[in-house]
Amino acid sequence: MGIHVSTKINGDDVEFVCDAEETLLDVLRDRLNLTGAKEGCATGDCGACSVTIDGRLTCSCLTLGAEVEGREIGTVEGVAKGNELHPIQQKILDNAALQCGVCTPGIVVAAKALLEKKPDPSEEEIRYWMAGNLCRCTGYDKIIRAIQDAAAEMRG
């Protein structure tokens, strides 16, 4: 028996029907064709599925689709304003802070959430905040630098 859910995704009203056991990640990817969030593990350990729910950073693989009734969801698809990249996106490109890029959507969402909470994080704070986002390719160095650069630019 499907469950009807009304929610907002990246500022737009969205309605969907899902099964009780479907995760928000399943709904985003399989029902709404928002494939920016990735499934790296489905157990909350890799961060590739990162989204925000009412502004709070969350693993969409650990949230049920049915739980987001009336909430506001932010996904990587909503981070750029039209064709204008968010500073974190631009700095990831400038710093070559991606190799394969499969972790990148999660990194973008998580880093943006950090900088909204804490505009001037230390390297250590960035590293601990990002500890839930696995990247196997880069060794994190360039990702951390990209976040530092984005933070500096956003502070102006």
Binding site: N33, K38, L93, A96
Partner: peptide, 21 residues
């Protein structure tokens, strides 16, 4: 220089193995 597939990868548009339907 910036990589040609970069924008697609920071915006979530790039299609990986499981992104095709």
């Amino acid at each position: 220089p910036l990589r040609p597939d970069g924008v697609d990868k920071v915006t979530g548009r790039a299609r990986f193995g499981a992104d095709m339907n």
